[in-house]
Design a protein around this nucleic acid. Structure first.
Length: 485
RNA sequence: GCGGAGUUAGUCUAGCUCGGUAAGAUGUCAGCUUCCCAAGCUGAAGGCCGCGGGUUCAAAUCCCGCACUCCGCACCA
């Protein structure tokens, strides 16, 4: 199913919808998760914790969203997380200064250059607005961070543009107090904020968005000394290097040099094993190795994990080898010591990060799971049972003859343990269809026979087949089939 | 931010040319009936027609701004 089908489902069934929508001054790029969306998101994150955090023995923190100016001076975001832009005085169109100059005059100025360099180049080469030939205003920087004023004096601080900065800043304390030992993974789930020029496509480009970030701190001398590598040595990765897409095992990727070392390969391996369990078809995915121009300013080696969707390739995860960029910057700025002892030697750890876009991942899971079952005239959200917002619908075939009461009784027995939805009203087929649309993998129906022999029917979402089971078996069956893998 | 297309009940759409205080389908809720896959009947709720201003006795309809959504450009998780 395509973007519009997913969007419609999201709006109608409470997955997500625009923020502040009743007001005309609502800004673009802000969306809210409804009940189904929150339930899906929570389950997705639980899977992430199981498959990455616990699997690798990482620790998880929860940092502030507002961070001090110094953090972003050190991280480089104040200087680099900004585009030089120029605005036409006549038609008010805005352009990227570096791109416009290179297109018209073939002069390459790095985007981090002084603003005067852009102005000079524009003057000397007589560069005019490509649309209306008007003159440009002076070049200015558009920083994508949201600035906030703290307290009555409005002391400047910023909403974090990525969650990981608190991980870097907290690293010395965590290493000391949590008995740290390299390699050490620290993870965080939370909101990040970027003042995008043009937010677009609901969850896919937001100004306020969720990230699940993992920063693994390691000894740069030991990047090929990875005990756990054997766990993923035979896991297949699809890697796009330049224009060529190749499928190879992690072991082959390291041996051929496509991936620089076992350390990076291990994390790409467990990442793809995680995504396999979300229901996304990983044969439609790739790790795209980024060229120098595409990489973020802090990255030494970068792979984007992308999945093919109906609106094109979508970047879900950025995997960056950040070297000691962050720790040395924070060490210099703060004068704190960020070195740690590994094998009786002082080292400044290097960092490999797995920066996951949660909202985009959830969208992609929905798109891959949503099916149009034309034969039975229904829309089915075939989510993996452990990700479904509702695990089971509890239905009475009819309300009368005590069936309603019996149904309520069963619902009460299981509602704390499972996400169960109780429904008595309307035709039974209609209720099954509704459950199909929110992805409930099971429906339990109480009928007249239930009152005689304490059995119910259990219906499976994907096959629509029904079996009769004992009430006493409901718990063990649901427990088995809604369990995480 | 630019260019193009849109915005009328939860959803989809009619009405706009030719101003006269909103229509249908579907969905939702309640009841009856049937009793295992969107059946039927009855009833109800739900819309300051994206927002603001103007023209007019009167605006969903005409005019002007703005916002948002979608498609391209550029940027990114």
């Amino acid at each position: 199913m395509n973007y519009e089908d997913v969007m419609k489902l999201a709006l109608e069934r409470g997955f997500y919808f625009p923020s502040c929508e009743v007001y005309a001054d609502a800004q673009a790029g802000f969306w809210e998760y409804g009940p189904s969306g929150v339930s899906l998101k929570n389950k997705f994150l639980e899977l992430w914790r199981r498959e990455l955090i616990r699997r690798d023995g990482m620790m998880e923190i929860d940092g502030s969203q507002i961070m001090s100016k110094s953090v972003f001076e050190a991280s480089g975001h104040l200087g680099n997380f900004a585009d030089p832009i120029i605005k036409c005085t006549k038609c008010k169109s805005t352009f990227r200064a570096d791109r416009t100059i290179s297109e018209i005059s073939k002069i390459e100025i790095p985007e981090s250059a002084d603003l005067e360099e852009f102005d000079n180049a524009i003057l000397q080469n007589n560069i005019k607005c490509p649309k209306c030939k008007g003159d440009f205003e002076n070049t200015r920087k558009f920083n994508m961070m949201f600035k906030v004023g703290i307290g009555p004096e409005e002391e400047p601080a910023y909403l974090r543009p990525e969650t990981c900065q608190s991980i870097f800043v907290d690293f010395p304390r965590l290493f000391k107090t949590m008995r740290g030992k390299l390699p050490m993974g620290i993870a965080q789930v939370g909101k990040s904020f970027r003042n995008e020029i043009s937010p677009r496509q609901s969850l896919l480009r937001l100004r306020e968005f969720y990230q699940a970030e993992i920063e693994v701190f390691c000894n740069p001398a030991k990047l090929d000394n990875v005990e756990k590598f054997s766990e993923i040595a035979d896991t297949v990765l699809r890697i796009q290097n330049d224009s060529e897409l190749v499928s190879m095992t992690c072991k082959e990727a390291v041996e051929s040099g496509v991936i620089p070392n076992k350390f990076v390969a291990y994390y790409l391996g467990i990442l793809i094993e995680f995504y396999e369990k979300t229901g996304i078809d990983v044969t439609k995915s790739r790790f795209r190795k980024l060229g120098d121009k595409e990489k973020a300013f802090y990255a030494q080696v970068a792979f984007d994990f992308e999945v093919e969707t109906t609106i094109g390739w979508l970047e879900l995860v950025a995997c960056n080898y950040r070297s000691d960029y962050d720790l040395s910057s924070h060490a210099n700025k703060s004068k704190e010591k960020f070195e740690v002892v590994d094998d009786e030697q002082k080292v400044l750890p290097h960092v490999f990060e797995i920066s996951m876009g949660i909202d985009r991942s959830l969208y992609t899971i929905l798109e891959y799971s949503l099916k149009d079952d034309k034969e039975h005239e229904r829309i089915v959200l075939s989510l993996r049972p452990y990700l479904s917002p509702v695990h089971v619908g509890i239905l009475s075939l009819v309300k009368k003859d005590g069936l309603k009461e019996k149904t309520d009784e069963i619902y009460l027995q299981i509602k704390r343990k499972y996400d169960a939805f109780l429904d008595h009203s309307g035709a039974i087929g209609r209720r099954y269809r509704r459950l199909d649309e929110i992805g409930a993998p099971f429906a339990i129906t109480v009928d007249h026979q239930t009152l005689q022999d304490q059995t119910v029917t259990i219906r499976k979402r994907d096959s629509m087949e029904q079996n009769r089971i004992k009430i006493s078996e409901i718990n063990s069956i649901l427990s088995e089939f809604t369990a995480y893998p």
